[in-house]
Design a protein around this nucleic acid. Structure first.
Length: 259
DNA sequence: ATGCCTCCCCGAGGGAGA
């Protein structure tokens, strides 16, 4: 089973890119972030025509996540537990019914800038809720993964120029500490499990020629429970997509599992 | 660089992203 997470930066702006990518790369499951679309405005039919089941947790204009799957999906839920007043569409879950069922969570973690401030408070609070959900996934002792745009640079080696991110909400100490707190529960960063070297990024800013200078950061991650990590056979970042026409500022991060 | 792109809202120019 091949699963990719991809922040597409707007489904309306990226639909042709997405359809071509589904044809070429053919993920079994694609976890999408920043669809920036309400459920009823999402071009569901064009994706279903390619053999995908489509589950959406959308929001007009901002945020929004989705799961596309060639395999059947069961028990779909929307929204991260822990705050009934949270209006932002950043979390969706479904069980992918392959040879071995895998609980797949798609997430778009808040950016948090400027920090300090209310947006950063929201980010840290959201990460607390994420940790609670992660603990529940561990307690189930089943294969489960949390894939998406974490807006977290875990370590200095995950940025081309870490010094310029020191005061940024993606790299502040409290951000990295909250991320480690989740990892330390017993999760595996799938990409890091197979690629220890620095210099692998999943995002390059549109500005300042960041792509041409390879001034990137690794902020899109797949975290796995032990039962899921045991099935892991590979992970990679599809870097080339950033250099194509009309790209998203993020590229897909892939995991392959014996499931 | 408190913003050099690009997206969304809509139908101008501002908010958001990271």
């Amino acid at each position: 089973m091949q699963i990719a997470t991809f922040n597409i930066n707007g489904i309306k702006a990226r639909i042709e890119t997405l359809l071509a990518w589904l044809d070429d790369a053919a993920p079994d499951v694609a976890v999408l972030q920043e669809i920036k679309s309400a459920d009823d405005a999402f071009p569901r039919g064009m994706i279903e025509d390619k053999g995908y089941t489509v589950e959406i947790h959308g929001q007009k204009g901002f945020n929004g996540v989705a799961i596309l799957s060639k395999l059947p999906l069961e028990d779909v839920t929307r929204g991260l537990p822990g705050d009934d007043g949270d209006e932002q569409a950043r979390w969706i879950e479904a069980t992918v019914m392959g040879a071995r069922p895998v609980r797949v969570c798609g997430l778009y973690l808040p950016n948090g800038n400027p920090a300090p401030g209310p947006k950063y408070d929201y980010k840290l609070n959201w990460m607390d809720r994420l940790r609670a959900r992660a603990q529940a996934l561990l307690a189930a002792e089943e294969p489960a993964l949390m894939a998406g745009d974490y807006n977290v640079i875990p370590q200095a080696e995950d940025a081309a120029r870490p010094e310029k991110w020191e005061e940024d909400a993606l790299f502040l100490y409290d951000t990295r500490a909250a991320f480690r707190r989740i990892l330390n529960l017993g999760f595996t960063d799938a990409f890091r499990a197979v690629e220890p070297a620095p210099g692998h990024y999943s995002f390059w800013d549109y500005q300042r020629g960041a792509w041409d200078r390879n001034d990137g950061i690794r902020i899109d991650h797949v975290l796995m429970t032990p039962q899921c990590a045991d099935l892991l056979t590979g992970a990679r970042i599809e870097r080339d997509l950033r250099g194509r026409e009309k790209p998203s500022d993020h590229v897909p991060v892939w995991v392959e599992m014996d499931a």
